[in-house]
Design a protein around this nucleic acid. Structure first.
Lengths: 225, 225
DNA sequence: GAAGTAATGTCGCTAAGCCGACAGTAATTA
DNA sequence: TAATTACTGTCGGCTTAGCGACATTACTTC
């Protein structure tokens, strides 16, 4: 059987996990595959409707940017994750990345064929909404140090789902951490150095090792200096 | 035919608009009706799963509150609108309010009976997500005056959909405006008085009349003092 | 290994805006 | 009509954190 578009088994995505292999096979025709270079913005042939994409490999940054060049990163997607484009947020490949994508109109066909997919999409959107709302609360109430601690928390959460390895290492630069916590490189640096002096973490080029993460989780819920 | 729970025709909600009357009639059994007094928090008999509610009359504030008593209002729902509870956001009646509600499990049954409902829910969640994401961008990039202008903008948008009457009057107190724009009463007051001096608006007790809204919409997209 | 680039460390200035405090005024209720 | 409560107006102090500027250090590439 030919597979000109080189679409892999959809069952590899948690989103489709456990669904009928026959259905999954038949849905392949809706999908397209595309790869992006590091730092390249994810753009898809415009179809009028929104696009949904699944990350096959690599990492994708979902971020807003302001008129004056600032950037706020909402989340970073890894292999296996889904994202549905909406709003003005921008998707950019952090490293070489491959994705499968389809437009919302086609996804609707899939939903019609399988109510279970509809349910899962609703659940997925609900989850994203939850996270997004929490982010709003963070920005509204918490000061930078607390938000940074929560960035660490979220990052580890996401990692624990996929890989159990590498205990408490966060592979993000200060610049990236600033973008994720809605602050600036300098301020983040100051906070990190402060925490390093307290023995809470170790700073390295390109990554941070958390030695006493518990000390930070206090800040995640409460609010102390 | 008895209607002990006193559930009105579901067709009155835009969400269900145009769906088969027979189906709508049959879904009534899933719904419950409840009314809340002014300032009362919306709580529903716990069913384990999330709750979806439809506002019959009144107004409902969806807000986050912080440990130290601050509050951030995400949105204010009016009659006809739907909301699906998630996260830690709190729903509170601003005035005497009546709602229909059901839990997510039951809503899933409805979705299974009608793919169209599933599609609409997905669209609804997508729209909310869009708005929520834009809110994040606001909080991350814009300063208070600009966010306040956007609160006006959003409020008028929402009003134009429902009622065309009352040109540019915003019925919110400074306190409420502060909560909606993630700031404090004092700061909001200062900005409003400044705009009043420029003849952009008129301040009244309990409401604001926009005289030259165009002057504010500039701030909505750009960023000037 | 020289040049270039990316990441980090540090300082001081400045501004936005939070916060407490208090006063005045309008609406509501007793 | 007195009392209470809700809303608005205003001020000064204080803190957080943004921003420019510059130095240093590590990786990368040719």
């Amino acid at each position: 059987m030919p597979n000109p578009k080189n679409i892999p088994d959809l069952g590899i995505f948690p989103f489709f996990n456990g669904l009928s292999p026959a259905l999954l096979e038949s849905w392949k025709e809706y999908f397209n595959r595309k790869s992006f270079a590091k730092r390249q913005r994810l753009v898809f042939p415009s179809t009028g409707s929104d696009v949904i994409f699944f990350v096959l490999s690599g990492e994708v940054k979902i971020a807003y940017s302001s008129e004056d060049g600032k950037e706020f990163t909402i989340t970073i997607l890894s292999a296996g994750e889904v994202y549905s484009e909406h709003s003005l947020a921008m998707a950019t490949a952090i490293e070489k990345t491959e994705v499968l994508y389809l437009n919302m109109a086609d996804f609707r066909s899939i939903m019609d064929e399988s109510p279970e997919v509809a349910r899962r999409l609703v659940r997925l959107l609900g989850t994203i909404l939850r996270l997004t709302n929490d982010l709003i609360a963070d920005l509204a109430f918490r000061e930078t140090a607390s938000r940074l601690a929560r960035v660490f928390w979220r990052t580890l959460q996401a990692k624990n789902i996929t890989m159990k390895q590498q205990r408490d290492t966060i592979h993000l630069t200060h610049e990236e951490l600033a973008s994720l916590s809605g602050s600036t490189r300098q301020t983040i640096n100051e906070i990190l150095r402060h925490w390093e002096q307290q023995g809470i973490l170790e700073l390295h080029r390109g990554y941070v090792v958390l030695l006493k993460p518990e000390k930070l989780w206090v800040k995640v819920s409460h609010d102390h200096a």
